[in-house]
Amino acid sequence: MDDRHRVTVTVNGAQFQQTVEPRLLLSDFLRHDLGLTGTHVGCEHGVCGACTVLFDGQPVRSCLMFAVQADGHEITTVEGLGTMDQLHPLQEAFRDAHGLQCGFCTPGILLTLIPFLEDNPNPSELEIREAISGNLCRCTGYQHIVDAVQLAAQRTSA
């Protein structure tokens, strides 16, 4: 089938022009076409949250969108948060509070939490648990993730 579409997408502030097949998922576009493998693919039906990215500033499942739908839109992936030398404060808090073990769920959790903390800089434990309820983690038992978010909130308000 040669129904192919030219798309212009801004990812982490940089503009990309690519030609895509309509059936290409946004998650696969980010990983395979742009080489941004920080966006992880778990379940591909919207349950695990590993592929969460910011689409025009809002967390969405990149496995439940087609790349062609991102034409003209802005996307932030985990690569857009910090660098190896200078982590994002939330990433730093995750490192310091042991908020990750294998790290597979971490990019999705970080991107879910960034707009959440902007709206609610001092969340309660319950609010944090509710905020990450759409992201599965099989290592930490979530406790250290909650600790990491509280640490990040504390440091930001200090």
Binding site: G46, G49, F55, P59, V60, S133, G134
Partner: peptide, 9 residues
Amino acid sequence: IAYSQIRNR
């Protein structure tokens, strides 16, 4: 209804 990320879309 599902999760916040799903409700955003």
